[in-house]
């Protein structure tokens, strides 16, 4: 597969996943705010922190009101991580590899973009917000399903899955981290009903609420962290995402799992091992926020190494030995 094509597929997958996750955490926050006791007030700022773009936000918007945050995270073309920007980027990448992905994937992604674009133009009111974020989630799920069902599960598909899983792991870690920011502001709430509601919201934003209930029953901070960080089987849990990413990375290169041929495989393998033998008590003792921070740095390194290994333009000339068999057959 062409390096440029692999690069585009990788980013296409990543941006669709990012758009979905942004919709997830805005929607949950929205639900949360509607439930919040009066004295808590509106807390929209944590969302900007999750996205990691708080400096840009502060510069251009100033105060974190509901309207500002929604506009910034959902419809701001200047914010490269807003839902509409992510879809525009995903579509642009898809457009440059239209001949590689299936027509159905393109059609769905194009419709998805046009839907978000038209809402961005019309604006949203409180009544239609929930419906919109739901539609974004569904459209992303539909895209994933179509990708699963219509694209050969070969190299391109694995690049798409690899980026999706890494992006999802990153976003789950940020959603977990948002509690850190909220907690700082309302220390007195720990252990109260409002605290439980917040932890439940964290689960809901990753669609994990029901699955968690089946496994753990009671909602405890430790239980939620354990579930979203270390569960091997829940599809939005970080550990699960890393395992899936590793599968795809090794399918692309053909290197057996447990060994490595490039730095990306080495780093991802090390991280998976770390997760296999981690316990939630150690993580909390270490400090959840600090742990998640370190995790995000490691995942960034993996992303950089994937770029270097597969996409970066090699300037080295073709070696004479390469492709000799093809010369000889002529």
């Amino acid at each position: 597969m062409l390096s440029r094509v692999a690069d585009s597929i990788y980013w296409m997958g990543c941006y669709v996943e990012r758009a979905e996750n942004v919709a997830r955490f805005i929607d949950v926050n929205l639900q949360l705010m509607l439930d919040s006791p009066d004295y808590v007030g509106q807390q929209w700022e944590p969302l900007v922190f999750i996205s990691g773009d708080h400096e840009d936000f502060a510069k251009r918007y100033g105060k974190a009101t509901q309207d500002n945050v929604l506009k910034f995270l959902a419809f701001d073309y200047e914010n490269p991580n807003s839902i509409v920007s992510c879809l525009r980027a995903a579509r642009q990448n898809a457009r440059s590899v239209r001949e590689i992905i299936s027509s159905e994937m393109w059609l769905q992604l194009n419709k998805f973009y046009l839907m978000v674009k038209s809402v961005a133009e019309q604006g949203l009111n409180l009544d239609s917000m929930h419906q919109f974020f739901d539609e974004v989630k569904s459209a992303s799920h539909l895209f994933n399903g179509i990708t699963e069902a219509t694209m050969t599960h070969g190299e391109g598909w694995h690049f798409c899955r690899l980026s999706k899983q890494l992006e999802r792991a990153d976003k789950t870690s940020r959603i977990l981290d948002v509690k850190y920011f909220i907690l700082l502001r309302s220390v007195t709430d720990v252990g109260t009903a409002w605290d439980d509601i917040q932890w439940a919201a964290v689960l809901r934003s990753t669609s994990a609420f029901e699955m968690y209930r089946k496994d753990h029953g009671r909602i405890t901070p430790k239980g939620v962290v354990d579930y979203l960080l270390l569960n091997r089987f829940f599809p939005r849990a970080i550990h699960h995402c890393l395992i899936s990413a590793r599968e795809s990375l090794h399918s692309i290169s053909g290197t057996p799992i447990g060994s490595y041929k490039n730095p990306a495989e080495k780093l991802l393998g090390q991280l998976c091992s770390e997760f296999s033998y981690a316990s939630v008590d150690e993580v909390i003792a270490f400090g959840l926020h600090e742990y998640l921070d370190g995790l995000q740095v490691k995942m960034n390194h993996i992303g950089t190494e994937i770029h270097e290994t597969f996409f970066a333009k090699k300037t080295a000339p073709v070696r004479h030995g390469l492709g000799m068999s093809q010369f000889q057959s002529q």
């Binding site: 062409l2 440029r4 590899v97």
Partner: peptide
């Protein structure tokens, strides 16, 4: 394959494309 100029390189008198 759909390629752009930067995907191709000429070496040893042959045309090659950059792949993963």
């Amino acid at each position: 394959e759909l390629v752009e100029g930067s995907d191709l390189v000429v070496s040893d008198g042959y045309v090659w494309m950059r792949t993963t």
